[in-house]
Design a protein around this nucleic acid. Structure first.
Lengths: 165, 165
DNA sequence: ATAAACTTTCAATATTATTTGAAAGTTCAA
DNA sequence: TTGAACTTTCAAATAATATTGAAAGTTTAT
């Protein structure tokens, strides 16, 4: 396969994947580009490559930095800011897990804690308590797995899991 | 907390969570309702409870069935179709993992297999190969974990993981 | 202090996803 | 068959989300 073709497919696929994972398409594509670049890229270069506006580029680069997936690089003697991505895939996985846990799982666990304490003893309420408690248990277990993954250095996590098969 | 309040919060939260997990809001809310209902619900009842149209209800109930999260219940002597959700939270987790693996991870692994075979030996292409191979490895490891989770009966998976801490 | 080089903001616009509801389709009892 | 009771479809409307680009803001060199 030709490089240009492979690159295009890769960026396109990353964008699609991103959007089904709570990350917007452009953000994922900028990340994809930074991942395969041999040097840090400027806003100009990102705009040029992805054919997107300055504002859009700026917003999504900042979002990537918020997620801990990219950082500024200052080149001595240059005004312009450059950006580079962390290329360690395991780190990326951990970072994404960490952020999504914080943004999604934590609030749900908090909510479930609140609502399992609903008053009443009708069949309806009993069922509600049962279901929400089950969900709470599952969410808490999921949280433990994520914490384990987040804390695990390198690929210890996968190594162990690999042995479990 | 009052039941009506808890219920509302729960349905609202489930909808929000769903949308950041590749499931649309209404689909998630229908699921939430079916989960806490003591009896199967009809299209009419879902429309009424969630204040949504017939078409919307129908589409999303079918989507839930596609995902293996709900099923039709035929009540003898009734024309109307009723729907109920699988209430086993672990099953739901497995089902969602299975579907998302099929819809998202599998295609990406396939793509990565293709594009890591890019031709060329420039620094650019070498970097591309390196990054995509790393991604491939990570995706494959993730696949193994998911397969393990999907195949694991009951909560064996979490039990083992729990011991790892 | 000025202006060039750059970054950030945000109201307007475009795109994408969801929802509606009426019409078409199906099933079944009589 | 017929028609009542129900389900499904899908084009159009609406809502949600992302993008643009020009203006405002900031930084740095002189």
């Amino acid at each position: 396969m030709k490089y240009s073709e492979a690159k295009e497919k890769y960026i396109q696929a990353w964008g699609t994947l991103g959007s089904s994972w709570g990350v917007n398409r452009t953000m994922a594509q900028i990340h994809a580009l930074l991942m395969i670049s041999t040097t840090p890229l400027s806003t100009e270069e990102l705009m040029e490559e992805l054919k997107i506006s300055r504002g859009n580029t700026n917003m999504n680069v900042r979002a990537l930095m918020d997620w801990g997936l990219a950082e500024k690089v200052l080149v001595p003697g240059e005004r312009r800011e450059y950006f580079k991505a962390d290329k360690n895939v395991m780190n990326i996985g951990v970072q994404v897990a960490k952020e999504r846990k914080r943004r999604e799982l934590d609030p749900i666990i908090k909510l479930l804690n609140d609502i399992t304490n609903v008053d009443g003893d009708t069949a309806e309420v009993k069922e509600f308590r049962k279901v929400t408690k089950d969900l709470q248990k599952f969410a808490t277990q999921t949280e433990s797995v994520l914490d384990l993954f987040i804390k695990s250095n390198q690929n210890w996590f996968f190594k162990i899991l690999g042995k479990m098969r």
